[in-house]
Amino acid sequence: MNNNSEIIARMTGLIYPLIIMFGFYVILNGHSSPGGGFQGGAILASVFISRYLVSPDKNLKIKSLRVAEKVLFFCIVMVPTLFLFSSEQSRIEIVHLTYLILMNLLIGLKVASGLTIIFFRFVFYEGGK
């Protein structure tokens, strides 16, 4: 039995997609305006915090997020290795922009999954009495 306010639950549900879109805006425009992977990932993680406001007793399956985090870390190591440290550097703008956006996206998703795991672990396991 949770006695949360219905108004907060309803009106937070209204702005979920807006928060997600704003997070992706910060991530995808990291190369041309302030923001970037870390900030956008934190915004995406706070979507799950605001879900905790609405339904506090709903846990999340953390296992898939852990796998996703490791795969993303592998990609973060591999993509610059293939692009930056290769012997021949291309001077085409499109390739560089694709690299920047891809790296921002990878870092953003990784930070989002990491912070989400930390948050749910803390709230459901550490804070319990």
């Binding site: 949360n4 907060i8 702005i15 807006l18 928060i19 704003f22 910060v26 305006s33 302030p34 923001g35 915004i43 706070s46 915090i49 605001s50 406001l53």
Partner: peptide, 23 residues
Amino acid sequence: TYLMDVALAYSVLGFIGTILIAR
């Protein structure tokens, strides 16, 4: 105009902290 992103971030996420402390 890119400074407005910071204001957007506050207006989207600022209420979470207040509601959490109040609860």
